[in-house]
């Protein structure tokens, strides 16, 4: 009987260790309002954003041209089409002045094609660096996939910030592919947030929705093992689920612990009844 007891205790400890320290990837969902966001887009065609309005700036095509340093400024008309090349680094910044919101897309890809412009029936590949300033007259929603840096870390000359947001962690259920809601952290104004896996920034999927407000809405989800937040320009905060949240929030773990507790309760009742019966029979 004593061997059985030790075996049960060992089994419970083993289950507890697996629950607490077992490797489970979490999904980080970051959403909120920001004035700036930088995405290193992946090769997914979802990043092929198309525009047919706005003010476009691009560098010249030949370094020796007189206009190379000055670049070219052109206005896109409804018949024109600018298609962004997947794999481009895109920084989105909203600028709100005198009740008018403009969104500036700065797109970079060193030495490679950033976007293709079709204007007056002519197709031109624009490389290296372009800027597109779009006046927001109606809401604009753009999906993306890539490594995303939300907000800009505070410092001199920074004027576009993350305004508010939250990081919620969806943890993987024990012995199941389902997810449950773990901790939720609020982001401060001026934070810069991104998700990493063993130190490398992970791919996020998400979208931005720009309206004529001062800032725009964003939502991004990434799989990783921690979210990093740069606060006050230099302080690096790590947001990761506590191992104890697995005990308190995972429904599967809660069910297992309830069952074990019930089992012990029944065992305790059985022992009390058995002892009572034994004492009674001894007295008789």
């Amino acid at each position: 009987m004593s061997h059985v007891g030790i075996g049960i205790i060992f089994l419970i400890v083993l289950i507890a260790v697996v629950i607490l320290f077992g490797n489970r990837n979490s999904i980080y969902s970051i959403k909120g309002e920001t004035q700036t966001l930088t995405i290193f887009t992946s090769s997914n065609p979802i990043n092929e954003w198309e525009f047919s309005q706005g003010q476009l700036f691009y560098l010249g095509l030949d370094l020796q041209e007189e206009t190379f340093e000055l670049g070219h400024d052109i206005r896109l008309s409804e018949d024109d089409r600018l298609t962004v090349e997947p794999g481009t680094q895109i920084k989105v910044t909203s600028v709100h002045r005198q009740n008018q919101t403009n969104v500036v897309f700065v797109m970079k890809n060193d030495g490679k094609v950033v976007a293709t412009l079709i204007k007056d029936g002519q197709q031109t590949s624009l490389s290296d660096y372009i800027e597109l300033t779009v006046e927001i007259t109606q809401p604009l929603a753009l999906p993306f996939e890539g490594t995303a840096y939300i907000g800009e870390d505070i410092g001199t000359d920074v004027d576009s910030l993350l305004m508010s947001g939250e990081v919620s962690i969806l943890e993987q259920r024990f012995l199941s592919s389902g997810r449950y809601q773990g901790e939720v952290y609020n982001l401060n104004t001026g934070d810069r947030a991104f998700v990493t896996q063993h130190g490398n920034t992970t791919i996020s999927k998400g979208f931005i929705r720009v309206t004529d407000n001062e800032s725009f809405y964003f939502s991004a989800i990434s799989e990783g093992n921690e979210a990093r937040v740069i606060r006050y320009g230099s302080q690096d905060l790590v947001l990761a689920p506590s191992i104890w949240s697995r005990v308190t929030k995972d429904p599967n773990v809660a069910a297992i612990t309830s069952l074990i507790a019930l089992m012990f309760l029944l065992l305790e009742c059985y022992l009390i009844i058995r002892e009572t019966v034994l004492i009674k029979s001894d007295n008789e």
Binding site: L63, D110, Y129, D157, V158
Partner: peptide, 26 residues
């Protein structure tokens, strides 16, 4: 840079133009 995008061009006295590759430290 004051959080701007930087481009650096170098022009020799003979008129040959070169461009340096600029990268933000993140």
């Amino acid at each position: 840079s004051g959080r701007s995008d930087v481009f650096l061009f170098l022009t020799s006295s003979s008129g040959a133009k070169k461009r340096a590759k600029c990268q933000r430290i993140e």
